[in-house]
Amino acid sequence: MDETGKELVLALYDYQEKSPREVTMKKGDILTLLNSTNKDWWKVEVKITVNGKTYERQGAVPAAYVKKL
């Protein structure tokens, strides 16, 4: 869990989004888990830093590609 009490997951593999509802992640990324009720796809929040600014993006990733921490 992070400092706000939200559950975290670890990306076990790289994943490139294939639709606007998904998010890209790299192996080793730590993501915030938002919903894991679907056994195949979990909704997560990814933090992306671009030019020193951090953005948050929500989307789905394959459940088999992440592990709860």
Rank of each mutant, 00 (worst) to 15 (best):
M1C: 15
M1T: 13
M1Y: 13
D2M: 14
D2V: 14
D2E: 13
E3T: 14
T4F: 11
T4H: 13
T4S: 11
K6T: 11
K6R: 14
K6L: 12
K6V: 12
E7K: 09
E7I: 14
E7R: 11
L8S: 07
L8K: 11
L8P: 02
V9Q: 00
V9L: 09
V9F: 04
L10V: 15
L10C: 12
A11V: 10
A11G: 03
L12K: 04
L12W: 03
L12G: 00
L12V: 06
L12P: 01
Y13T: 07
Y13A: 10
Y13P: 01
Y13F: 13
Y13V: 11
Y13E: 09
D14H: 04
D14Q: 04
D14Y: 03
D14E: 05
D14N: 07
D14R: 03
Y15V: 02
Y15A: 00
Q16W: 11
Q16R: 10
E17W: 06
E17D: 04
E17F: 09
E17S: 15
K18S: 08
K18M: 10
K18V: 07
K18P: 02
S19N: 11
S19E: 06
S19K: 04
S19I: 04
P20S: 12
P20C: 12
P20W: 09
P20A: 09
R21M: 13
R21W: 15
R21A: 14
R21Y: 14
E22F: 05
E22H: 07
E22M: 04
E22A: 04
E22V: 04
T24W: 05
T24K: 02
T24A: 05
T24L: 04
T24D: 02
M25D: 00
M25F: 12
M25P: 02
M25R: 01
M25N: 02
K26Q: 09
K26I: 07
K26C: 11
K27C: 07
K27T: 06
K27D: 02
G28N: 05
G28T: 01
G28C: 08
G28F: 03
G28A: 02
D29W: 11
I30N: 00
I30F: 04
I30M: 05
L31E: 04
L31K: 00
L31P: 00
L31V: 05
T32D: 04
L33I: 03
L33E: 00
L34G: 01
L34C: 07
L34M: 06
L34R: 02
L34K: 05
L34I: 14
N35M: 07
N35R: 06
S36W: 07
S36L: 04
T37Y: 10
T37S: 14
N38H: 10
N38V: 04
K39P: 13
K39D: 11
K39Q: 10
K39L: 10
D40H: 14
D40C: 14
D40I: 14
W41V: 03
W41D: 00
W41G: 01
W42V: 07
W42H: 01
W42M: 01
K43R: 13
V44K: 00
V44Y: 01
V44L: 01
V44Q: 00
V44T: 00
E45N: 07
E45A: 14
E45D: 02
E45Q: 12
V46T: 11
V46C: 10
V46D: 00
V46Q: 12
V46Y: 09
K47S: 12
K47T: 14
K47L: 13
I48L: 11
I48P: 00
I48Q: 07
I48N: 06
I48W: 13
T49I: 11
V50I: 14
V50L: 12
N51T: 05
N51L: 08
N51V: 05
G52C: 09
G52Y: 06
K53I: 14
K53H: 12
K53M: 13
K53E: 12
T54R: 06
T54N: 07
T54A: 07
T54M: 10
T54P: 07
Y55Q: 08
Y55M: 10
Y55I: 13
Y55R: 06
E56Q: 14
E56M: 15
E56V: 15
E56L: 15
R57N: 05
R57I: 09
Q58C: 12
Q58V: 14
Q58W: 06
G59E: 01
G59C: 06
G59F: 08
A60R: 15
A60V: 15
A60M: 15
V61R: 00
V61Q: 00
P62V: 04
P62K: 04
P62F: 06
P62Q: 03
A63I: 04
A63H: 03
A64Y: 08
A64E: 10
Y65D: 03
Y65E: 03
Y65W: 05
Y65F: 12
V66F: 04
V66A: 00
K67A: 10
K67F: 08
K67L: 11
K67G: 06
K67P: 03
K68S: 06
K68N: 05
L69A: 05
L69E: 02
L69C: 14
L69N: 02
